[in-house]
Design a protein around this nucleic acid. Structure first.
Ligand SMILES: [Mg+2]
Length: 422
DNA sequence: TGATGTTTATTAATAA
DNA sequence: TTATTAATAAACATCA
């Protein structure tokens, strides 16, 4: 429906090529483990460590020294150009994804004088290379968290597969490469994980696949701040049962695993009965006998409508963490932006947030991207760091975080005071 | 026919 | 160490 930016994979990386596998399957720029400073040390983030530790003053570091994805991003995004040269040697070697960066060797600036006539050119190239080295590095998010971001940032809290693709590519240049590879993983993740459920299309929205939404009970799967590895993956009881019975038909009714423990999030059982009630209610409204059997997809549709109508269940989780997360999540985008993108939709105007989260502060919400007062911020940012936050590539009609408005180009993805933990 | 889903298998990284 | 989570590949089915 909306124009989508097409990302053609550069000749550098063939989709089917295995030549790049080493680069893409590893966390390219990682050098040192963060575990010492991190409660939740995920797979080594693709970003940061070498750069973070290259001697640059961490102006964004706040008192508690909480390490975070956000901070790592901040550190990178805010790295003064003046510091680039100093890091160039190590950076350059990182560009190919194999940061030999063991020990941020490039402390010393090569060529002390550096006043040659082509130094400007070299500098420009170096800067470009440097920036690409992180904008195209693998983001420190699992596919599950990326999908979750996409869905939760959508007005209807559901997206088609291709829209999920698009969201990810818009935000992370890294994923404009090797599309066949990671998109297969996305599809696998959607199918395999119970936290993602299909919502069938309604007749008024014909099209190819169905919509994907979040399981009503999946809660905040990332409230621990780890976006690479959850402590426990969400499992839908019913599907668990199905799987079990499918495997060993002898297992008929025993069902409930005594030790069944839902993740960390809260509010599971509470709205469980609530859900059933709502379903029955919906059935009545739709002239469906409450006892009538609906298939899974239909049920999901009803549930989704219900949730969308009343409130976002997902946002009532993790309130205890909001203080930490909601002010600083790396992907807190702006609702205005979203309004532009989906100008045809007005649903988000009507949404209320009875829980702790508002559309603007919950961890994955698109809010605060380019709010009014941010003009000044951008200016400051640009002046200080020499970034042009407004993309030079404006050809895209797509108002979303398309070209030039990706995670790295938008300073507001990196809140200076952020303390999102990772 | 290509996009969309489902499923199984393998492997690496991380948590317990 | 073992158990769990996630990434990746791949075979296969289905659908517009
Ligand atoms: Mg699923």
């Amino acid at each position: 429906m909306l124009p989508q930016k097409l990302y053609t994979e550069s000749s550098m990386s063939t989709a089917s090529s295995n030549a790049m596998s080493a680069m893409t399957s590893t966390y390219s720029m990682n050098t040192m483990p963060m575990s010492s400073m991190n409660t939740c040390s995920p797979q080594a983030p693709a970003f940061g460590s070498s750069i973070m530790n290259s001697g640059m003053p961490m102006t964004t570091m706040n008192g508690n020294c909480m390490p975070s994805v956000q901070m790592q991003y901040s550190a990178i995004a805010s790295s003064p150009i003046s510091n680039m040269n100093a890091r160039m040697s190590s950076t350059m070697s990182s560009v190919n994804g194999y940061g030999g960066v063991g020990g941020l060797s490039g402390r010393g600036d090569l060529s002390g004088g550096d006043i040659s006539p082509n130094s400007a050119l070299q500098r420009a190239r170096a800067d470009k290379t440097y920036r690409r080295s992180y904008t195209h590095a693998k983001p420190p998010y699992s596919y599950i968290s990326l999908i979750t971001m996409a869905i939760q940032n959508s007005p209807q809290k559901m997206l088609t597969l291709s829209e999920i693709y698009q969201f990810i590519m818009d935000l992370f240049p890294f994923y404009r490469q090797n599309q066949q590879r990671w998109q297969n993983s996305i599809r696998h993740s959607l199918s395999f994980n119970d936290c993602f459920v299909k919502v069938p299309r309604t007749p008024d929205k014909p099209g190819k696949g169905s919509f994907w939404s979040l399981h009503p009970d999946s809660g905040n799967m990332f409230e621990n701040g780890c976006y690479l590895r959850r402590q426990k993956r969400f499992k839908d009881e019913k599907k668990e049962m199905q799987r079990a019975s499918h495997k060993s038909p002898s297992h008929g009714g025993d069902t409930n695993s005594s030790g069944k423990k839902t993740p960390i999030h809260h509010g599971d059982d509470t709205h469980k009965s609530h859900h059933l009630d709502k379903t029955a209610e919906s059935n009545l409204m739709l002239s469906i006998h409450p006892a009538a059997k609906l298939d899974v997809d239909q049920m999901n549709l009803l549930h989704h409508n219900d949730l969308n109508l009343h409130s976002q269940h997902h946002q009532q989780m993790g309130e205890e963490l909001t203080g930490m997360l909601n002010h600083c999540h790396p992907l807190a985008l702006n609702s205005d932006h979203q309004a532009m993108l989906h100008h045809g939709s007005m649903s988000h105007h009507l949404k209320q947030e009875p829980s702790g989260y508002t559309p603007s502060n919950h961890p994955f919400s698109i809010t605060r991207l380019l709010p009014n007062e941010s003009k000044a911020d951008i200016k400051m940012y640009d002046m200080h760091y020499g970034y042009n936050s407004l993309s030079p590539l404006q050809n895209s009609v797509h108002a979303q975080a398309s070209i030039g408005n990706d995670y790295y180009n938008n300073p507001l993805y990196h809140t200076p005071t952020g303390t999102t933990s990772l």
